[in-house]
Nucleic acid binder design. Structure first.
Lengths: 335, 335
DNA sequence: ATATCAAATGTAAACGTTTACACTTTAATA
DNA sequence: TATTAAAGTGTAAACGTTTACATTTGATAT
């Protein structure tokens, strides 16, 4: 591989001049610039990015830390981010993590080892935010679906609260009073917020909350199935269920079918996220659409903003609006 | 951020010794090792990975180039790769690309700029393999779903041919003779291979191929819908359709419904991939299961093998077996 | 022709590591 | 005790860039 020295020698100039050409410095005459460019082409030279990084302290790389889970959700967010930052010549390195310790370890190593200029963190179950705030001091970060604030961060979060409130209210409008809730993974930010929205809708309607109608899942279809089974086994089971995500709602529909309960007549079931399968289940799932790809694009833009130095003017928090998608599983007729 | 110099000074040793401690060199006494380790902990020191890379010429990074598409397929492969290589302290940088030029540009820049030690390339529509072979000479690469051979590569490919043959033969066993095929994106390797399998099954059964029963799609649901509409408009339309992937098969089912054709009675429809939605469509889709996550893991292991230097013993080509998944859309009864 | 100044170019240090080689200490052997 | 080998440590160059500063070149004004 050709280095800047080879180019300099062949073009008969110093390496400084070659460097200036590479970096479009105006302080080089047109004539030499052309000569150097020609040699660069001949030798197929590309500046070694590692050496550049050592000097300039910039890697043009953004680190992403995401949960290790099969998920349309994460995949689309990542796609959105990559699309945006790649246009600005940034690269993206992805780490996935199984648990919080894992996450923090990777995070710190990426940070301290100088591998990335900024990071995108998707750690929906983070608990030790104090430690995080300390290690991320003055480092550009965007948090996705986690409401944390550090000295140079912004949080991009879904409007879980209002989405959940809307879809729960919709069930109430259908006349339901005994509405069950299936929680997502413990400590998960989205799940907690959706639960708050659910409670708020109940409160608005003057329905007193009953823990009898709550069950715990972990966002998987199987857990939704189990949770629904549990709810259905109550003495007076709920007539409607709101699951904290679509996968669990689909599991709940399976559970209803298993017990020969008709959805939506015997029990209405709704979810959250609008994953692609939701259109196709029988009955089609009423849910809340999250514009996942767009979230990724926004996240990408924000991290670029942080990195471009205009630190002061970056938003601290962005809330992504969310849309009710009415299909059949709530009891609405064909539209 | 603390550097090796700071550590050396504080521990009262030379930077060489610190370096030796970092790299677990045996040539350092237990006593000094402990002292240095303590200082490292105190100062929260981590070696700068960029500087290390400049010296050692290794970045501990693997580059992935993937098509920019929403796809369970790609997402799972990537997840599989990350899971495996992360365990060996490798990082992963992902680029997505819209078209072939795009791909090649990114590829070359990653390569020449010294950013990655090896690459995973998913370029199912690559045409200019000569150029590719030239620029990848002696560089560790694994191709996914592309049958190319360079001096240090291996190709990991799905057994598209046999999968397609099996599912087509299954339709033939159901008594179908007029079987349509919906192609995927033009030049796509998987699509071409699946087409070959389809033809082979027809030939085996003594059915002469008819271009009347072929239509072109691009792997999206919409394109499947359109292609199926085209097939159905023939004077004597096919009684069965094999779409080159599940998304298009699902589109085809929609098309059948639009024309009030019963699936599978009026027309049987099958796909390929077994995406998660396929279980849920009505009727549930008969298809070919591709163990996508496992493909990712295999790819990860192979690239690690290439990088670990045991170059000679790495397979040139790995074919992933594939499994027929019989559901209802082919005409089979409830199992 | 000379002095002045701007523009162009070159020199060399710096970035934070690794590592070959040289040197010093320690321990073992005669 | 003197000699030698082994183990431990340090010195300095190297990796491929960028960039402050110094130097050279060329043009312009006198």
């Amino acid at each position: 591989m050709a280095t800047i020295k080879d180019v300099a020698k062949k073009a008969g100039v110093s390496i400084a001049t070659v460097s200036r050409v590479i970096n479009n410095s105006p302080k080089v005459s047109e004539k030499t610039r052309q000569r150097v460019l020609e040699v660069i082409r001949e030798l197929n030279f590309m500046p070694n990015i590692i050496a550049q990084g050592l000097q300039t302290k910039r890697t043009n790389t953004i680190g992403l830390i995401f949960p290790d889970a099969t998920s349309y959700y994460f995949a689309e967010i990542i796609r959105g981010i990559i699309g945006v930052v790649q246009k600005q010549k940034y690269h993206v390195v992805i780490s996935s993590s199984h648990d919080e310790n894992d996450e923090l370890r990777t995070l710190i190593s990426m940070l301290q080892s100088g591998r990335v200029d900024g990071m995108v963190l998707m750690m929906p179950t983070i608990t030790d935010s104090k430690f995080l705030k300390h290690t991320l001091k003055n480092f550009p970060v965007v948090f996705v679906c986690t409401n944390i604030k550090t000295s140079r961060s912004t949080s991009v979060i879904i409007d879980n609260f209002n989405g959940a409130k809307k879809v729960t209210s919709h069930l109430i409008e259908h006349g339901h009073r005994r509405i069950g809730f299936i929680h997502g993974s413990p400590n998960n930010f989205d799940s907690r917020e959706r639960y708050r929205g659910y409670l708020s809708a109940l409160a608005n309607a003057g329905i007193s909350k009953s823990e009898l109608y709550e069950a715990r899942g972990n966002f998987t279809e199987q857990s939704g199935f189990n949770a629904a089974m549990e709810l259905f086994s109550q003495p007076s089971p709920p007539t409607a269920i709101f699951a904290a995500n679509d996968s669990m709602a689909i599991g709940a529909i399976e559970a209803a079918k298993r017990l020969s309960l008709n959805v939506p007549n015997d029990v209405a079931i709704v979810g959250f996220d609008d994953i692609s399968t939701s259109r196709y289940v029988e009955p089609a799932l009423t849910t809340v659409r999250v514009p996942v790809f767009e979230v990724g694009e926004i996240v990408g833009k924000i991290i670029l903003k942080h990195l471009s130095g205009e630190g002061g003017s970056v938003e601290e928090k962005i809330v992504i609006p969310v849309e009710l998608v009415v299909r059949k599983s709530c009891g609405c007729k064909e539209s």
